[in-house]
Design a protein around this nucleic acid. Structure first.
Lengths: 101, 101
DNA sequence: GTATTAACTTTGAATATCAAAGTACTTTTA
DNA sequence: TAAAAGTACTTTGATATTCAAAGTTAATAC
C-alpha cells in the first residue's frame, strides 16, 4: 500500500524541488527560492539532501558577472521521483474508485 | 506550487491510514496494522495525531468478547485529505505534461 | 568603502518518528 | 486455575528532520 513512497520525497519542499526539475530541465537557486517561498538556508539544505542521494546535480557558473548555481535532476532522480509519483497516483486512484460508489 | 500540501498527511503512514479510511468507511486497529506493516505503538501514535486534528474518529466496542477499536474519517478529514490529494495530483500532472514533450 | 547579491554553512531549537518495552484488562488454552 | 495470548494502547528514549536566523565568503555595484 505505501511501499512505493520514497522518504526522500515526502517533504513538501523536496516534492517541490523535484517537480520543478521535471518541468525545467535546469533551474537556478533563486528561481527555486521564489517558486517555493522558502528561506535560502532551508532550500540549500534540502538541495543538499537530494544531492547526497544523487537525485540532483549542481552546476556553478556565471551569468555575466554574477555567480549562478543551477540544478538538474539526474536520470536516477527522475526515475526515483517517477516511482514515487506512481505510488502517490495509486493512492489517489483508490480514492477516485471510491468516489464512483 | 506546494501550498495545498497538508503537513499532517505528509508522512507515509498517515497517508496510508487516510487512504484506507477512504476505501473502508470503518476499519479496525489490527487490520490497519496488518495493511500498513507498522508496530502497534507507531500506528497508535499516528492515529492519535489524526484524531487530535479531528480528521478521524474512534469507536470502541466489542466483537463477541474481544475488544475492538475502529476508526473512520470525519467529513472534515475527508475534505482535508481530498484537498491534499488534489495538490499531489496537480504535481503529478505537471510531470505528465512534461512527458508529452 | 559601503551596500548588495548570491549561495551557502552553522547553529540551535522544536518537532517528528520509530522501536521497544511496559501496562491493563480480558480471554483462551492446557 | 495458572499460564499464555490478544487488544490496544502509553511511555520512554534515542535518533532524525525541519526550519529560521544569523553568520560567512566572495564578488559587484554604487
Amino acid at each position: 500500500m505505501i511501499e512505493g513512497i520514497n522518504k526522500h520525497f515526502e517533504n513538501r519542499i523536496r516534492l517541490g524541488i523535484m517537480s520543478l526539475l521535471m518541468v525545467n530541465q535546469r533551474l537556478d537557486f533563486n528561481r527555486m527560492k521564489e517558486s517555493l517561498q522558502v528561506t535560502d538556508g532551508n532550500l540549500a539544505s534540502h538541495l543538499n539532501g537530494l544531492e547526497r542521494e544523487k537525485y540532483i546535480e549542481v552546476r556553478k557558473s556565471f551569468i555575466g558577472k554574477k555567480p549562478n548555481t543551477s540544478y538538474r535532476a539526474t536520470s536516477e532522480g527522475v526515475e526515483a521521483f517517477k516511482q514515487h509519483l506512481n505510488a502517490l497516483e495509486s493512492i489517489i486512484n483508490i480514492k477516485n474508485q471510491n468516489e464512483r460508489n
